[in-house]
Amino acid sequence: MSYVRIENINKSYQQQKVLNDISFSIEEGQFLTLLGPSGCGKSTLLRAIAGLNEIDSGSISVGDRNITALPSKERQIGMVFQSYALFPNMTVFENIAFGLKMDKMKKSEYTPLVEEMIALIDLKGKENRYPAQLSGGQQQRVALARSLVKRPKVLLLDEPLSALDAQIRRSLRTEIRLLQKRLKMTTIFVTHDQEEALTVSDRIIIMNQGRIEQEGSPEDIYTHPASEFVARFIGSYNVLKRSDIGLDSLPDTELFAVRPEVISIAPLAEAPVAELGTATIEGKVEQLYILGNVIRFTVSAGGLDILVDALNNSTVHRIQEGMDVRLFLPADKCEPLRQ
């Protein structure tokens, strides 16, 4: 039996359904990410699991306990907020010790636990600082320590990195992942950042308009998007119609997702003949960007804008903006999409 079970959760605000029959489960020690655009219901779902939002129907269980009707403080769930929500009048030490004090623990009992946590988040020597004296990244680490010190059964992270700048975000997400693995902490992470989700998660659930669009490992989600929404949201997929590709050997659906890096490009004048099972599309290079080791072309073909990524080497250097080109799409790399 799975460790966390979310079953048939429904929630509406003023007749608008924000969570529509959501069900999924998480294994113990797993890192699950709820990924989706703003307003897709992911934060509402997380707050429902935390007990901060009521739900209309459904059930939430952790271990063998049904916690649906329990208040937040009895759920044994930790949560890190987007705004950190550190208590401004308390020092780093006092912030981390707060939850243990609420459990009526004696000072002599909680001091070593708090100190251990401070060492774990690498803030030794800053115990007596106040939140206002710390950087954003340090504040978020204190918020994390404050939740972890109580050894919750599940840790919820509500867009914890979105207020930080890109570089700190990258290093902190790796830190969070390492810490989670070390403590084997069952974690649910909410984000709208695809890259973040793909980098840290064991499993990803993609949400859209209060429903689960797709569920799977980061690799699965990236290589086999199930719907047009996922294909467009998860990366810069090209979504093409069957008629745009024009191959008979394609599976029997109307829409296909094609990653920019599986498409080959060649100047029309010197393009080879297509192999069997490869579609060709002719068009004109509209734009060209150099993204380091990759060059991204936007090719306009019969009203379509197709993205193509090619390795930045001498064979593609001849291709310039405005040039007529031929694109090659292998049929087996065209992912059929559910509509």
Binding site: A50, L52, P71, S72, K73, I77, G78, M79, F81, S83, A85, L86, F87, F98, G99, M102, D103, A143, R146, S147, K150
Partner: peptide, 22 residues
């Protein structure tokens, strides 16, 4: 940002009264 602070305190095991007072 009182709402977040109260919710954080509640998640850490504080009652609403304790969250308000402390």
């Amino acid at each position: 940002n009182a709402k977040d602070l109260v919710e954080a305190a509640e998640m850490l095991g504080a009652s609403r009264m304790a969250a308000f007072r402390r």
